[in-house]
Design a protein around this nucleic acid. Structure first.
Lengths: 119, 119
DNA sequence: CTGTATCCACCTTGATACTG
DNA sequence: CAGTATCAAGGTGGATACAG
């Protein structure tokens, strides 16, 4: 059937597209880090505190990865000792509404699960 | 400062909320599977074909996991041999616009990367 | 067709110690 | 402060064989 065939094409494409996105945003911490940076520039140690549970090694690694993907910008401030600021790129700003939506859904989901299973 | 403090609270909350979401949607395949189901009911073997690269074991595992999280509904059809239909729950429908947004962003991102590095 | 069980290679992550 | 290096442990996912 015509419609079925068209649907299959569209479906396949979208599955691939989502997969592309997750290649960039996958991993345990990336979206949390972006979410933190969504509130403004942050120093390395600030992110470390705000993203609960992440280790220094993973933070460096994920930051570097996202820098290469043009999602964030890294700036070294020549203070004593050195401090480093991270911020979202303009490019990445497009992504933030989606991430905020994910946050809202997560909150709602948690409430739903709590309501179902009680405490 | 007042505003700083308020921001930090809000930031922390949102990072946690996003983390909650990713607990449910994390993993290599879940979002791709949901994306596929977003186009309508699918049988096990259909999803297997549409979600490129997934193995049968992982598909079962992820489906079961999402069923427990109330994201999808599983229905056994007493055909010969048995077939099984999966579909999104009404609850999960709320999530689909977000997933579609992720797909759109992924497509745009891919184009951007291609434009930058050529071919 | 729709799974489950097992085995195993690989990857990811955390802890710790260390550098500039 | 902002990382890097190393190691060990556990998780993740694929292949295969098998079951209902």
């Amino acid at each position: 059937m015509e419609v079925q065939h068209h649907n299959h094409q569209a479906c396949y494409k979208r599955v691939m597209a989502v997969h592309d996105t997750m290649d960039v945003l996958g991993g345990k911490w990336k979206i949390s880090i972006l979410s933190s940076l969504g509130f403004g520039k942050k120093r390395y140690s600030e992110i470390l505190k705000e993203v609960n549970g992440i280790s220094g090694k993973m933070l460096s690694r994920e930051l570097k990865d996202m820098e290469m993907n043009l999602l964030i910008k890294r700036t070294v401030l020549e203070t004593q000792p050195v401090t480093v600021q991270y911020e979202l790129t303009e490019y990445c700003e497009n992504l933030m509404p989606i991430i905020f939506s994910l946050a809202e859904w997560g909150t709602a989901h948690r409430q739903r699960v709590l309501a179902k299973w009680g405490r």
